[in-house]
Amino acid sequence: MSTTKAAPAVTAHSVVEPSLRTKRIAGALVILYALITLVPLVWIFLTSIKSPPDSISYPPKILFTPSLEGYCNLFTTRTRQTPDYIAALPPPSGVCDAVTRERNMVIAGPSNFLPRFANSLIIAFGSTFLAVSLGTLAAYGFSRFKVPLADDLLFFILSTRMMPPIAVAIPIYLMYRQLGLSDTALGMMLLYTAVNVSLAVWLLKGFIDEIPREYEEAAMIDGYTRLQAFFKVVLPQATTGIAATAIFCLIFAWNEYAFASLLTSGSAQTAPPFIPTIIGEGGQDWPAVAAGTTIFLVPILVFTILLRKQLLRGITFGAVRK
């Protein structure tokens, strides 16, 4: 059955709803901004599927034949061989084999990219987990208990972020050498945790302050200890804040370059200092660097998309009351 519903009154000067025109202009601006920020990413992706000569040709090529050479070079090390030697080989076993042979080379073995990428994953996610766990507990303490000198402590915690990493890198380098932590995943995890925990405490304190303490008090009266009340009542309600904080911590730890390039060189090296060092024949192997960068973007993209609902609610917290 179709009844004619009165259309909601559209007034030109509605205070609450922005007008259609305003919405359109805002939409256009957002799209324009998105395009501008996306151009470098698109460029990197395009470079990653160019052949090395195409990647450095001038003027830059918009149209080109896609090639997997960048990705192949990223994951492998190669040695140069004579054409006779290559011709004598059995047929190529895969795409990369074939691509490599066209350049008169053979695959010698895997490159360091996978282990470096694994380091990045372990260190970034590990330190995020530590920073958020510690930060949640500390924020809860600051939010709920009378901590002597709470304001000074909070300021002190924040002040650890005020210096540029380079300023503290040398002392940390010396300390880490003494402690046997330099070039270890544990060392990097601790370092990123220390840097991120200040951000985590501040962000999470804001979120936990918003959770009425009556919830925990109700739980404690109902027979739970404070710790149980924390886990059963506070944590479930802080998930939004925790997700938002985790993303911020992860982005920092994932992208961090300065400490990583100074404190890691071998087994604990993360992807950011490794990727720019990929060298091909006759200099920088741009397609391989671009391929590494493209792959490097994936985890953070997935993580952010998975948590985007919480993130959106989290970033606008305070502005929107429940």
């Binding site: 009556e214 109700a218 009266i221 479930p236 429940k322």
Partner: peptide, 20 residues
């Protein structure tokens, strides 16, 4: 004694029902 050991019930002004 701790609140949890007193065996009492408390109804809060804003009820404090667990939203989750």
């Amino acid at each position: 004694k701790r609140a949890s050991e007193r065996d009492i019930a408390f109804v809060f002004q804003l009820f404090a029902l667990y939203p989750h």
